[in-house]
Each structure stands twice: as structure tokens, then as C-alpha cells.
């Protein structure tokens, strides 16, 4: 494959990936509610959005749940990652393997299983159930990202600190945590994204009239298109792209230059 053909191919794939998103963003500024052309610039749908209390309440709930998820999953996941890195102990392989089911099993299965269990034990559906579920989905991501950062950390540094008389907590707080801070930040942003963009699991765990933003959008789409959805969708895409751009700044996952 010649270099030019290769670049054209890559370009075509990028067009495929971004065209629908770009068209949606453009249409959110089109005056016609039926995507009619010619294009006529208007911010009507964003103004409408500003007056849509239901949409705003769902957005606020999504943000609260995603923040709580990021906070809890990062704390629990970082602690587990440090222990898995620092010690050799029986059963460690099993614990590492147990991180894969939440990532690998289709969300449809995890979501319906959570619905059954939470209903049976009396937690039911709603915000607590959503946080419980989202944190579980995010923990493996945090552990994997923090573990990747820990692999670049020389254990000799911990030993040196310990031999100079520092206790386990001091070593962790003064030596280990500062080194892996970029990994922790990236893990937290991932956890936030896992929760904020989550649809399938939320769909089963949210209560009608008390939903997250993606679930509300889904309900609205199934009732029939409204251009307001374009507007809110465009804002969501922009927000998550910004978030992932930030992740890429603190945590390089494209390999070496």
C-alpha cells in the first residue's frame, strides 16, 4: 500500500467516524425541526433546552452520579491496585481475573442481573442503585489504569523509604501516591466517563421520572425526534470529547512517540 493510498484510507475512516456527529451538530443549529435544507442558522433549540426543566434535572442527576462514581471507584480501585502491585500472595491471580467479568460481560446481562438482585434485596431502582452499579463497572477500569502507571514505578523507592524508617502509610502517601498521581487522575476521568455515558445499565436501574440524561434522551428518541435532542446530544459529545482529551494529556495511551 503506498503512503498516499494509506493516508486517503485513514482519512476516509475518520470521515466515517465523524460525519454523523458533525451532521448532528450542524442540524442542532438548523432552524427547521425536520432537518430540512437549505440550512438556516438558528439557536432556537439551545434556547428551548435552557427552558427544559426535565432535561436539566436529568443532566444534574447524571453529573452527581458520575462525580460520586468517580470519587468512590477511584478511592477503592487505587487502594486495590496498590495492594495487588505491592504484594505477592495466594489468590492474587484469581483476584486479577475477577476484574474481567464486569468489563467483558455485555452490559445487558450485568444490568438485568443488577435489576433482579437490587429488587430482591430491597434496594430497588433509583439513584442509590445507579451509584452502586456504576461504581462496580468503573472499579476495574480504575485498577487497570492505575496498575499500568504502577508498572513504571521502581519498588526500590518504597524500600529505600522504609529502610529509612517510614511506615507503610507514610511510604504510600509521600512516595507512591505522588508518583502514580497521573494514573489516578486518568482513572478518575475514565470512571466519570463510564458513569456519565452509561446507558444500558442505567436504563434498567433508573426509575421513570427520575432518570439520567442518556435514559431520558432514549425515551425522547423513541417517542419521536425533536431537534432539542440534537442540541443536548451535541453538548454531551463535546463534553465527553473534552474529558477524553484531558485524559490523553495526563495519561499517554498511544504508546511512545
Amino acid at each position: 500500500m503506498s503512503v498516499i493510498a494509506g493516508r486517503v484510507f485513514l482519512g476516509a475512516v475518520l470521515v466515517f467516524l465523524y460525519l454523523p456527529i458533525a451532521v448532528m451538530a450542524l442540524m442542532s443549529f438548523n432552524a427547521s425541526p425536520f432537518y430540512a435544507l437549505p440550512f438556516e442558522f438558528s439557536t432556537t433549540w439551545y434556547t428551548r433546552l435552557a427552558g427544559n426543566a426535565e432535561m436539566q434535572a436529568a443532566a444534574a442527576r447524571s453529573l452527581i452520579i458520575a462525580s460520586a462514581t468517580a470519587l468512590i471507584a477511584t478511592a477503592l480501585g487505587t487502594a486495590a491496585a496498590i495492594a495487588l502491585w505491592r504484594f505477592e500472595f495466594p489468590g492474587k491471580r484469581v483476584l486479577q481475573l475477577l476484574l474481567f467479568p464486569p468489563i467483558a460481560i455485555p452490559w445487558l446481562i450485568t444490568g438485568t442481573a443488577m435489576l433482579i438482585f437490587f429488587f430482591s434485596v430491597g434496594i430497588g431502582r433509583g439513584t442509590p442503585a445507579l451509584i452502586l452499579g456504576h461504581v462496580a463497572l468503573a472499579i476495574p477500569y480504575v485498577i487497570v489504569v492505575v496498575a499500568a502507571r504502577l508498572r513504571t514505578f521502581d519498588p526500590v523507592l518504597e524500600e529505600a523509604a522504609r529502610s529509612l524508617g517510614a511506615g507503610a502509610w507514610t511510604v504510600t502517601r509521600r512516595i507512591t501516591l505522588p508518583w502514580i498521581a497521573p494514573g489516578i487522575v486518568a482513572g478518575a476521568l475514565f470512571a466519570f466517563a463510564v458513569s456519565f455515558d452509561q446507558f444500558v445499565v442505567s436504563y434498567f436501574l433508573a426509575t421513570p421520572g427520575d432518570t439520567t440524561l442518556p435514559v431520558l434522551i432514549y425515551t425522547a428518541i423513541r417517542k419521536g425526534f425533536t431537534p432539542e435532542i440534537n442540541a443536548v446530544s451535541t453538548l454531551i459529545i463535546l463534553a465527553s470529547m473534552l474529558l477524553m482529551f484531558l485524559v490523553s494529556r495526563v495519561f499517554r495511551f498511544g504508546g511512545e512517540r
Binding site: 487502594a79 486495590a80 483476584l95 467479568p101 443488577m114 433482579i116 438482585f117 452502586l132 462496580a136 485498577i143
Partner: peptide, 20 residues
């Protein structure tokens, strides 16, 4: 260090799968 994360996973993933 480990039990909080894994207890959470148990309560929200492994027990639900068993219940299912």
C-alpha cells in the same frame, strides 16, 4: 486495601449474577 473494592464488586456484580 483490597477488600473494599472487591466487596463492592461482589455486592454489585457477582451476587447479582448469582441471583440471576
Amino acid at each position: 486495601l483490597i477488600s473494599p473494592a472487591y466487596l463492592w464488586l461482589t455486592a454489585a456484580v457477582f451476587l447479582p449474577l448469582s441471583a440471576m
